[in-house]
């Protein structure tokens, strides 16, 4: 057993774990944060994407023990009170999901894209940047629309915050 201390969605967490525990297992099984999904378990599909120290990672391909001292944000940690994050709202508004399995990873990746590429995104950029996230329902069309709209909405939020 080994002990890991990290911050998850703003709360400090200390857990005694088997060293082979994956980050996604720690989140889902120990902390019961089941919004982060396991799709392929081979770092292809992106259903498990969370943010570690502000950047997107595939939580099925990282040991929980590697997260010592890290700050982790999951899909449960992005809404503000009862209000959805603008990217979540955009996925709802633009019907960017059918079964919803890939959605948490899509949204966490989408926010990461905005963090890296800014809020004015074109379709080509979004499609390229989402290549690590697989959806088997919607054919991506509405997902791409949602990401572009969500990015614009995030720009609005940033402007508000600045004012």
């Amino acid at each position: 057993m080994t002990t890991v201390t990290l911050t998850v969605n703003g709360q400090s967490v200390t857990q005694a774990i088997d060293p082979r525990t994956l980050l996604v297992q720690l989140l889902r099984e120990n902390l019961r944060l089941t919004g982060t999904h396991v799709g392929c378990d081979t770092s292809q599909c992106g259903a498990c994407v969370v943010h570690v120290n502000g950047v997107s990672v595939k939580s099925c391909t990282m040991l929980a023990a590697q997260c010592e001292g890290a700050s982790v944000t999951t899909i449960e940690g992005i809404a503000q009170g009862g209000q959805l994050h603008p990217m979540q709202e955009a996925f709802r508004e633009h019907h960017g999901l059918q079964c919803g399995y890939c959605t948490p990873g899509m949204i966490m990746s989408a926010i990461d894209i905005v963090n890296r590429k800014g809020t004015a995104l074109d379709e080509e950029t979004v499609r390229h940047e989402l290549e690590g996230n697989i959806c088997r329902c919607t054919g991506y069309h509405n997902i791409v629309k949602a990401v572009i709209a969500g990015a614009e909405a995030m720009a609005g939020g940033m402007r508000q915050a600045a004012e």
């Binding site: 770092s43 992106g46 994407v49 950047v55 990672v57 391909t61 990461d112 890296r116 690590g132």
Partner: peptide, 9 residues
């Protein structure tokens, strides 16, 4: 190489 999340690690 890989995808953005893989490149972050």
């Amino acid at each position: 190489l890989g995808d953005p999340a893989v490149r972050n690690r």
